[in-house]
Write a protein that binds this DNA or RNA. Structure first.
Lengths: 233, 233
DNA sequence: CGCCACATTGAAGGCAGTCAAAGGTGGTGG
DNA sequence: CCACCACCTTTGACTGCCTTCAATGTGGCG
């Protein structure tokens, strides 16, 4: 990847917005491009946090594992997004695992050099605050869902978000494609594939959605909204 | 409360550490002291976030409510701690409820004036990044517990943390006092008081702890550690 | 074509929530 | 000082959601 490409990627990243050319160039200087094949462990929980990452292509899952091996996905990172920023500022180790779901390229920012940049550049600080605040909101929502909602409600919310993000409206409803496997979706919703399969079937049998492999058609958006907000059926 | 008291409080607050006198004075100028009786709603979920808070005395619970009224406590704020900082930087509304558990005094920082301060003061920015990063770590841990651990494990972890924070060692083990009611503890652990009561009894019957009202004596710390890390009994 | 990971379905069991009731505790006012 | 009341806590019986275990189905890819 050439220097110009790196700068173009950095410019699209919220963490580096509103920076002028020399600052972007400096970011390019301190970062290193890395490539991971599908299924590579980028870092492990408890490992010393030596830097953070920007995904430039591919996808990365950040997840926790229980003692028995059950997985909870915290977030799936897409191109343009950052991860592990917070690990640089609190504690000294990564609090979770990160693994590439497909072949993935990232920019890696070593901790020391990046912290110097943050310290001397107020705009990056402010961007970092915004980024952390968004993560915080996301995790508050995740806690709420895991603690206060059942699997059907979590699934409904996910489908609504997915359709808002990447849905196409058709004659029958809103069509969208799952961008991850159903096992991974289950893990993101805090459950397992069997339970997710049953939840999808229940929605299908009630005529609320249609499912064909990864393609989901939302037939009754309002019903999904009711279920997602915890209204009993 | 006099001006000097306010400054003394601010100095003890991590968010305002490393600031020099004029900056502390300015913080004092833009903040307002407020007093709430026990059980007062400080703000509600969805309400426009006009400012954030530092607790100077008392305690505040920040929590979510489900459609059926079940409560999940996100955090209990003690004197010297801040809350709702993130609401100023992401979204425009508070993402949860805040309620005083006892008579409580806070310093209130209006959003606009505080943001001006943050923008022109890099040290506050850095402190804010550290604060947000700690919150993030806390919520990652909460997600992990809710999703991957059972009630006994969460309770065991809570008791270990409590004993590390405020335990006194005695001949029989480590003694500590619950600083909140068992109902509130249940809500913090993502469960209900009945289930917590049964979990406490199970630990008591196995000879791992003793319970007398709010006083808990940990007899077998190692057993608690095993349970808290998810090792099946 | 056959393998392998993913997905679906059924049966069974367990953890935790709900409902109901009794016991305990602290605070208030008579 | 005591009686009352409100709230918290505990316990039992029951229900239900979700997980576990097991088996079968399916689709992509070498």
């Amino acid at each position: 990847m050439g220097a110009m490409d790196i700068r173009a990627v950095l410019r699209r990243c919220p963490l580096f917005s509103k920076l002028d050319d020399p600052e972007i160039a400096e970011l390019g200087d301190i970062s290193a491009s890395k490539k991971y094949p599908k299924g590579a462990i980028i870092f492990s929980e408890g490992e010393e946090a030596r830097g953070f990452f920007v995904v430039t292509s591919g996808r990365v899952k950040v997840y926790k594992l229980s003692a028995e091996g059950k997985e909870q996905i915290l977030h799936i990172i897409s191109p343009g997004e950052t991860f592990a920023e917070a690990a640089l500022f609190a504690g000294s180790t990564y609090p979770a695992f990160a693994e590439s779901l497909v072949e993935t390229r990232v920019l890696y920012f070593p901790k020391d050099r990046f912290l110097n940049l943050v310290r001397k550049n107020p705009q990056i600080s402010l961007n970092m605050i915004a980024s952390l605040s968004h993560w915080l909101r996301k995790f508050v929502a995740l806690v709420e869902e895991l603690s206060l909602k059942d699997v059907s409600a979590r699934l409904s919310k996910y489908l609504l978000d997915l359709s808002a993000r990447s849905g196409r409206s058709s004659a029958r409803g809103i069509e969208c494609e799952l961008d991850i496997s159903k096992s991974q979706l289950a893990s993101q919703l805090g459950t397992i594939s069997e339970t997710l399969s049953r939840a999808l079937r229940k929605l299908r049998e009630r005529g609320i959605i249609e499912v064909e492999g990864k393609k989901i058609t939302i037939l009754q958006k309002e019903a999904l909204e009711d279920i997602s907000s915890g209204i009993p059926s």
